[in-house]
Simulated scan of single mutants.
Amino acid sequence: MKILLIYSSRTGNTKKVAEAIYEVLPEGSVICPVDDNPSYEDYDMIIIGFWVDKGLPDVKTLKYMENIEGKKIGIFGTSGAYNDSERGKKTLERTRQLLEPRNEVIAEFICQGKIDERLLERYKNRGPDHSNPMTEEKRKRHEEAKKHPNANDLNRAQEVFRKII
């Protein structure tokens, strides 16, 4: 089985998960950033990694996904949200809907990852009157996100993709 693993990473989180998944893929698999715009035609399966932006894959990944058709797909993402959060589940669901029915999504994974410092700076300045204000719960989640992806996250990602090979 020929596998292409592409990823987009803003802070290094998704790249870290991509490299961990790549370690368990069969020999001959290819890994590269989405910026390289690799052709997917000659591959049996495509694994797509992305950082979450407003509940969806980042713009570069969305653009790459637009033309994929007739492939088995694995998806994974990194987000500031907790691993088991409703937001994470919805992100995977929305991503799956973007790919199906033109493709078959056979694996999915999402984990928490540190948030871009520039975004955190913008959050800090939001007052209680803002439509999406900074709260104590959000501060705690942002602090927890700095610890991810950790070894447990990487092992879980490897296990998800090991099962489909």
Rank of each mutant, 00 (worst) to 15 (best):
I164S: 06
L56Y: 12
R139D: 00
A145L: 04
I115S: 02
R156V: 04
K146I: 06
L4F: 09
P128C: 01
K124Q: 14
H142S: 05
E66T: 10
S131A: 12
T135S: 04
R139H: 04
K163C: 07
Y22K: 09
K90L: 14
V160F: 12
K140D: 01
E104Y: 11
D116Y: 13
E144T: 08
N37M: 14
C111Q: 01
T78R: 05
I47Q: 01
R96E: 13
N150W: 03
E144S: 07
K138I: 13
D42H: 06
K15C: 07
P149Q: 07
G28V: 02
T95F: 12
I46H: 00
R96P: 11
H142D: 15
Y40K: 03
D36V: 07
K2F: 10
G55L: 00
K71G: 10
V24G: 02
F109E: 03
E27H: 05
G127L: 06
Y40L: 09
R118K: 13
I165D: 04
T135D: 00
L154Q: 04
P128G: 06
I115T: 14
D116M: 05
N150G: 08
E66L: 08
E136K: 15
E104K: 15
N132F: 14
P133L: 13
F161K: 02
S8K: 02
